[in-house]
Design a protein around this nucleic acid. Sequence first.
DNA 1: AAACCATTTACATTTATATTGACATTTAAT
DNA 2: ATTAAATGTCAATATAAATGTAAATGGTTT
Lengths: 209, 209
Amino acid sequence: MRQKLTQNQQKVMDYLKQQVKENGIAPSLRTAAAELDISHAAVAQTLKFLEDKAYIRREGRYSRTLHILEDTGDIDAGQRQKQIPIIGRITAGLPMYAQQEWGGSLILDAALYPGQNLFALRIQGSSMKDAGILDQDLAICEPRQYARDREIVVALIHHEEATVKRFFLLPDGIELRPENPDFTPQIYGFDEVLIQGKVIGIVRGGMEG
Amino acid sequence: MRQKLTQNQQKVMDYLKQQVKENGIAPSLRTAAAELDISHAAVAQTLKFLEDKAYIRREGRYSRTLHILEDTGDIDAGQRQKQIPIIGRITAGLPMYAQQEWGGSLILDAALYPGQNLFALRIQGSSMKDAGILDQDLAICEPRQYARDREIVVALIHHEEATVKRFFLLPDGIELRPENPDFTPQIYGFDEVLIQGKVIGIVRGGMEG
DNA sequence: AAACCATTTACATTTATATTGACATTTAAT
DNA sequence: ATTAAATGTCAATATAAATGTAAATGGTTT
């Protein structure tokens, strides 16, 4: 939804529309200023507001070309919104919703994260630091019961602890490798690890401090 | 269960819902006051009650942004989506609004990223790797003309090159420090660097392969 | 009595508007 | 090419309007 215009902005807007319609080109700042009986810089300032509010679009630095934007507004936004749950803990295969979050859900861009039944997991610790996954990040995950070599996955170890690691398939087991030299890779038997999903993205917020 | 509203509070609540739906933004106190035919302070007071009872949520001290909350205490999903532009290039000191050479737009969670006029910047290179910011990530930025010590900022160097670095204020200049040992910090004079914004979040997608 | 509703008044902050003057760029004339 | 005029930009500044907040006060409802 476009922001509404103030009275003054509407006046300038109307004037612009009329001028463009009559002459095919926008008037110069000083011409407009004279007709509107204000200073040229004031006109320039109002044009800035109009551009901010997406009513007009100007091109180039010193050109007078100016487009009047119709209200075509990107309404496709509604289709692009996707709401996924934020999982707190994963225990015994049953994901538990994290209620301490914002209602336990996260809005994200469907265009960026294709797939269905995605979920988000809040990262604890910095074991995947070198993969650009930090403590408190939200990992966007796609549910999966299997994994391919070198993928970053959400794994449940011993039906208890959920962790995010890089997955390696060994001849006789599974290696879950952190991406941080302070942590050591762990090797498990096939029956010790349950793959829960694959990490397909990261969302980090709250970098206020 | 939420506390029930009084008749008056319900009236104001209904009015707010309708206004937010129509205009996408809450009316000013005095506008609301005029339409409800009470004083502006009365509206403010009722808003406080509504916020206490978790029916609405307001942001900032002097901002008009207001969210309608659902029964569960969540922000209504419709209000939680926020669409921000993805800035493609930052060129020659042009102010932000002029650079909207559509790299597209991004939907994100308004609850996670408060603030107005946010924009996104696609990261090139891995100079901020150790801060968990990787190549091709989308940096969520808040427009800012200044920066505080140690903040991660978007800076324009010599009116040409836009970079994301950690900001340090020195006695006689500015240090822009990468977070990657392969890169070296750079020191600039005050007039060589233009702060364009502050990085408040990261969105990473496409970790398919 | 306590919670709620409402008013008036004063105040701080933000946003919009406007001015002036200097400057850089473009355009047109020479 | 040079010059002059027109034009857009920018900075500093100022003012007005809109807006949210707070305090003091009193009425109404429960």
